[in-house]
Design a protein around this nucleic acid. Sequence first.
DNA 1: CGAGGATTTGAAGACCCTCAAATTATGTGG
DNA 2: CCACATAATTTGAGGGTCTTCAAATCCTCG
Lengths: 250, 250
Amino acid sequence: MVKTTTIHREKTPCQLCPLRRLPHFREFSREELSFVADFKKGELVVDPGATIFLEGAHSAHLFTILSGWGFRYKTLEDGRRQILNYVMPGDLVGLQGSIMGEMQHSTEALSPVSLCVFERTELMALYNKHPSLAFDLTWIAAREERILDEHLLSIGRRSALERAAYLLAYLHQRAKALHLFDGSNVIPITQQHIADTLGLSIVHTNKTLKKLSERGLIRWQERGCDVLNSKGLAALAEWDGLDGGRRPFI
Amino acid sequence: MVKTTTIHREKTPCQLCPLRRLPHFREFSREELSFVADFKKGELVVDPGATIFLEGAHSAHLFTILSGWGFRYKTLEDGRRQILNYVMPGDLVGLQGSIMGEMQHSTEALSPVSLCVFERTELMALYNKHPSLAFDLTWIAAREERILDEHLLSIGRRSALERAAYLLAYLHQRAKALHLFDGSNVIPITQQHIADTLGLSIVHTNKTLKKLSERGLIRWQERGCDVLNSKGLAALAEWDGLDGGRRPFI
DNA sequence: CGAGGATTTGAAGACCCTCAAATTATGTGG
DNA sequence: CCACATAATTTGAGGGTCTTCAAATCCTCG
């Protein structure tokens, strides 16, 4: 199948944004909302496997994920790939590039992904006119930093089993807060993605996931991982979980 | 030796800050400078080994490193430690905690460290009155994120030798840009720090550093690592180096 | 001079990797 | 709807990297 990219003009008005109804996100003032609605230039829809950003790009846009799953990654010259983090609805994509000039990682869609499109050139206006939203941008960057801290701890110091447990608990918790599951709890990734996130080979990843299955914590399904016992995974990894408070998004 | 902590009132006026003379940092307007000078409440001096922030703390302050080296780290319950990143002059310490409420990592001094002290409660005023400085804060957070991305790639996908080479090239490049070396190029860390940064045991770290020495890339000294060939280290790690442009700091 | 921390070395074993191949799912074209 | 090609998962075997345990040496500092 050919990977397509479709741009639409203004499909979902921000005032009716389905994400804003989730208790996971903080409430916005009318002024904030109208600014963001103006900031938004349109929507982009990409197929699974499509590249949203490529390392080295100087993009004129940044995005907020409206629906779908994706991931950020870097590669070494010989092809070794490290997945840095996953992106889900409400996540800002491309802030690093917008703030600092050049993208130093790539971003790829895991599922069909729709994105709200913003213009990088209008970012300064946000800082000038809406300090509260400017604060939110820093908040979002600080949150990403915090998550990366935990990932570093995981890759650096946890065993393969603990790492896998942490990752799946992490993804489950995030997706659950976003009401991304419809009964099934299935995370839409391949074992190759998990391997490249954990810094493990695919073979050892497979054997590690099997151990988690044998303990009744997960079940591997067609197209992804079904989390059966999220708390058990977190306990195995000695992971406290994410901050449960409400968070902003642009 | 007892670890002491000394607080001074306003020793170095921001207008005369030695860091501002470095070409590494961007120029500030008179208004920005006077705001920051007002924002600064005093200075703090800590001894090597002292804890600047402890995980879980809700600190009323945040800091900028004025001089010295330190590092951020997290630990698992059984004591396994992962060093997340190093802090050097011009780095903001405690932004995560100030923005999000609670510190989720600890920070410790490697050398004598002096810090400029800011009040967390005045952070919102910065966003309200100085959009350019607010942008800088996001910039600083995005930069940290970018560095953590590279560290993740390193720990996840590079071999022990490559990892060590990357870390030492990274530290050398940062310190060099800050004119931290006085002829010697010695990075003031122990092999235990390196091990905890790379996610390796201290034994294997020692053997890995020996290989780098044998290749003439470094030389281990009393109290630290002397980098003999920074480019060679970067090449070995397939690392492109940091963005050479000027950067902001508060 | 003695104590404690840091570095160094050796040896055995665990964990994880690579290689190889079988099996199962997925998608496409006829 | 079936046949084929491709992708993803699974399993086995052997080997290498890195870990742990143990102990010696060196250094710093009181």
